[in-house]
Design a protein around this nucleic acid. Structure first.
Lengths: 176, 176
DNA sequence: TAGTATGTTTAGTAAATACTAAACAAAATA
DNA sequence: TATTTTGTTTAGTATTTACTAAACATACTA
């Protein structure tokens, strides 16, 4: 690996770290992904440690996060008990995985609190000023509807098994 | 405002704080928005301080952030030098505003680093192993293409002036 | 079974972030 | 011009977060 190649790789890694950070994720996540993305073969944990400059613990956490998000595949080889990791190069596949991950219980749980407010308002008939209740009901209901629309959109996208450039282009036609 | 009503409001505020936090934004942003969203009239900075429990400085920062994102409107009244703020109740409008905000220079800047890597790779003909260069070019180009697709999608959505439930339903049909 | 290779978890730390309190700025009114 | 009202900025702090180093767990090998 030439000096020049090393430099370009380093800058790319820093770039993805910045993007990762921008999206609100740890920089390490971007760095580990960048290393894997520029590797022609799956890499072991130790190789990731070498190339990313992070420690084993951090790489372990970050790479598992990436795997859980579907941005990285875990590869195991027969007769080799090391784990290897490879970057997912089909990003549309990753998006589907992320959307489909109802592992996002945390998201649902957050949304749930709005639904609870709505239910409490519905049950509050009589125990609070009726005009106020009407107003609050309307507002909270609108927010709920919005979340539902977003939710059904992401569910539909997640179900889709050929989400890709072509689909995007179709959507672009609608948005014309 | 009855005790019961106060309780429901409080829980709603906490709910939106959690959601705000989940999306990677300060909790205060969610809290301030929640207060405004449950108010029938625009509120002044001081009223926001009262109802949110934050200090003036924090509310000032958070509410300006919300205004910049198009989630809140600043209302000024003739002969009153207070600023008032009202929640945007048309969320689709907000989404358009957020997408349209090329104030998101920060995002573009982050993406820019990938483009730079691409350019450097193109310029590196001769100064690094050609097979390696070919491989890296291909990978980085694919990432760039993906970002471009996302970008054109968001630009299209931002240009749209009737993004709403109906549009979402049209998209859902495509995703069928 | 002891020893070795691998991955995960934990305890502590450094860095980033969002807040408070108070100083400051700007502009209207007296 | 001095005073009051309003909003922003700053300095310091508390909290959160992501990291390191090291202990631990697990499973393979001799």
């Amino acid at each position: 690996m030439t000096k020049h190649s090393k430099q370009i790789r380093k800058e790319f890694i820093e770039g993805l770290s910045r993007i990762s950070h921008f999206w609100g994720y740890p920089k390490g996540v971007g760095a580990v992904f960048a290393v894997l993305y520029l590797a022609p073969n799956p890499l072991s944990l130790d190789e990731l440690v070498q190339h990313s400059g992070l420690t084993k613990g951090a790489v372990s956490t970050n790479v598992r996060w990436l795997a859980r998000m579907g941005l990285v595949r875990r590869v195991t080889r027969l007769g080799d008990r090391k784990d290897y990791y490879a970057a997912e190069t089909d990003f549309y596949k990753s998006i589907r995985a992320i959307l489909g991950e109802r592992q996002n219980r945390e998201f649902d749980q957050a949304i749930q609190s709005v639904r609870e407010t709505l239910e409490k308002l519905q049950a509050a008939k009589g125990s609070m000023d009726e005009a106020e209740r009407k107003f609050l009901l309307e507002r909270v209901q609108a927010l709920q509807d919005f979340f539902d629309a977003i939710d059904s959109l992401s569910r539909a996208a997640a179900r889709l098994d050929n989400l890709g450039v072509n689909t995007i282009q179709n959507i672009l036609k609608i948005l014309k």
